Simulated scan of single mutants.
Amino acid sequence: MFEIDFAEFPSTSAGASGDFFERAFGWKVTPYGPQYTDVRAAGLTLGFQEDPAERPSAPLVTVRTDDLAAAREAVIAAGGELTREPFAFPGGRRFHFREPGGNELAVWCPE
């Protein structure tokens, strides 16, 4: 059996990236020196987007929530930059954001 248990992203500030996810979602952060930080969170699903109009230029990690509005406010309060306001897609609604280290992610809520 194979399971994905780790994903590594580039960051312009590993500490700022870790601090953001801790503040926005309460995830456990472990700094391993000034240039590397681990963030521990439960659950991961992968999707593959073929539509050229929607395909991200880099992997897009999507965080699931039960309250999209509260998640949006938490992202903003933690210093995230919204790159796409909430919108409907098959299966729910989501928004996209960029964390302080420069990575774009999404938060979604099922219908």
Rank of each mutant, 00 (worst) to 15 (best):
H96S: 03
V107K: 05
F2I: 13
G80K: 11
A24T: 11
G80S: 15
P56S: 00
L60G: 02
P10D: 13
G26L: 08
T83D: 10
E54H: 00
P56T: 01
G101K: 06
A7V: 15
W27T: 04
E73T: 14
A71K: 08
L82V: 15
G47F: 13
P100T: 02
F20L: 07
G43C: 04
D66S: 11
F25W: 08
A7M: 13
A70W: 10
Y32D: 01
D19C: 00
L46A: 09
N103K: 08
D19P: 05
L46F: 14
P90F: 11
R40C: 00
A74N: 15
R93A: 12
G43H: 06
A41H: 14
P100D: 08
I76K: 15
F20I: 04
R93C: 08
A70N: 07
A58T: 02
W108L: 12
M1Y: 09
V61K: 00
R93Q: 08
G18R: 03
Y32K: 10
E8G: 13
E22R: 13
N103F: 06
P100I: 03
L44S: 03
E3G: 08
A70L: 10
R98F: 06
R98W: 03
R72H: 15
E104G: 01
I76L: 15
A16T: 02
T62W: 01
P34R: 13
F6A: 10
S13E: 01
